[in-house]
Amino acid sequence: MLFFKRQLPLAIAFFFGMVGFFAQYIPHHSFEALYNELISWVRLLYAFALILGTYSLLRLHSKRIERKAPGFGYSLVLWAGFIATFAAGMYNDGRGFLAGQSDSGMLMWIYDYVFKPAGATMFSVLAFFIASAAYRTFRARTTAAGMLLASAIIVMIGRIPIGDMISEHLPILASWLMEVPNAAVKRGIFLGVALGVVATSLRIIFGIERAYLGGD
């Protein structure tokens, strides 16, 4: 049993990891073909996993409706939304679900007039949340926080026309902050992240890191 729960997954991780690693360095067409084959397996895996996800979501909400848990009305909305969208997708503007995706009809209507505006609304809520977060948390508690606060204010004002009204040096200072210290920090974090990614990948390939299998 341990073979299926430990050795085999580790061997698979090692094999696929190595193929992925060497695919970066071996341009040969036969290796390329092998790599493309593996990539298409991954895509296939995802298609099945999506069914799993949908099942998980729908089961959770049916249980809520059964138990009449607080807020179960939302679960009803979810089911209704799922059924309507699924039906529209299957109907496919009269072409049936075997034909290619139609670019008109009910599904597209849902996409254009429900999905897109809802997404846009959520995106614009960000402006309000930024204001609230800035008010509540941006405090000069320490010297470092104070410096951060000062730079934030300079950049915020320096990038709009009012900055020029206050002083012609303000926009220049704002640009400097963005181009020099900000870019330097970004690069530093990026290098660390890149190195971390490589090291973690190697740990997984060599089987040193195996917590993702559900245990040490």
Binding site: I130, A131, A134, F138, I153, I157, R159, I160, I162
Partner: peptide, 24 residues
């Protein structure tokens, strides 16, 4: 568009300054 953008930027700055003033 600069008008609302400037106004919101200034408002944010005011919020931050005011929050800090109250805090201190």
């Amino acid at each position: 568009g600069m008008k609302p953008q400037s106004a919101i930027h200034m408002l944010l700055v005011l919020f931050v300054l005011f929050g800090n003033f109250v805090f201190f």
